[in-house]
Design a protein around this nucleic acid. Sequence first.
DNA 1: CCCGCTTTCTGACAAATGTCATGCCGAAGG
DNA 2: CCTTCGGCATGACATTTGTCAGAAAGCGGG
Lengths: 201, 201
Amino acid sequence: MIRVILAEDQAMVRGALASLISLEPDIEVAGEAASGPQALEVALRVRPDVALLDIEMPGGDGIEAGERILRELPGCRVVILTTFGRPGYLRRAMEAGAAAFLVKDSPARELAAAIRRVHAGERVIDPGLAAAALSAGPNPLSPRERDILAAAADGSTIGDVARRLHLSEGTVRNYLSSAIQKTHSRNRVEAVQRARTQGWL
Amino acid sequence: MIRVILAEDQAMVRGALASLISLEPDIEVAGEAASGPQALEVALRVRPDVALLDIEMPGGDGIEAGERILRELPGCRVVILTTFGRPGYLRRAMEAGAAAFLVKDSPARELAAAIRRVHAGERVIDPGLAAAALSAGPNPLSPRERDILAAAADGSTIGDVARRLHLSEGTVRNYLSSAIQKTHSRNRVEAVQRARTQGWL
DNA sequence: CCCGCTTTCTGACAAATGTCATGCCGAAGG
DNA sequence: CCTTCGGCATGACATTTGTCAGAAAGCGGG
């Protein structure tokens, strides 16, 4: 029997995935969590064979949770499950030691298949996505550029961002300008969009 | 036996919801769809008792699909299922004649409960959300303001929008300016954000 | 130890954006 | 019939944004 835990913030989707997994005779849902920190806590308690983690969760994402789970439970296999097949997400997930990367677009039966293959020691990654991640290259933004871009993403003015991050307005402008150039965009909003779809933000 | 169809673009979530529903002895999934138009098509073929429709789908949203289904199959009950409990969504869903409005945050067992209640002739709406929708008031944007704001939402410049919609730049600026004021924002990006979270866009 | 990179800052400039006043037209409503 | 509202447009104006050059500090690798 393969014991898995399931972390996903939307309760209805979590319940639905649990029922999907429970259909499999050789897989059992040993715990559920609604956030990254809670996933770690549950993992430590139930010591699952496989941890199924959503990326888009409040309070720290699933990749970070996966990294911590692997530190504490090296025998556990981490499967990242996400709505968006963003190259940057895949890259980060692999660097964090994930054994599989699934997008929710793929057919439902692939979930159980991935859990079995991961449990058997294999890695599961969509080949097309892997190619996209490699061809897209690494995140070109410096950590600080990423911070400033993220802080400006919600429509704040330069003044707002400067105050929030304790910087001068000129500095914020310069960082945004270089983020715009590195993302090959024409303005802030486009830069935010590109960074998001690439999983850089 | 209550016969339902299920429209949701993410295949894995769709499969999971189907398996959740199939656990209920008195409910049966009679058809599945991955887009709005496909939902209509499937509905016409299988003539379900209840249509379960996601809002966020490619190619026309679930609310529009629900409206069409109701025109063709007046006996069918429409349940809107959505990730985001936005007041504007609820309002539009109700105006389109939906019998229930569920957010995916709510517990999994509420899905089957809602299907049964809707089939029995009741309406199912989260009271907190209903209050929010009423207190938020109707969409203050005129149709054209909404168009222009939507066209500018992806980071296009005013010139881009003007060309795309065959308007002068000044006109676009004026519409955006009035959209900014009506949403009590300080710039385009904030206006887009507000409009999105209210479900006006 | 020096080179290159990141982080931080300033000041100046050009371009884009947001606001306002004003005007015209057509449709809807009293 | 007159008023109001939405859609469309201009032109002028102030503000915000994006770009560029230059400069200092600190950190790491070769």
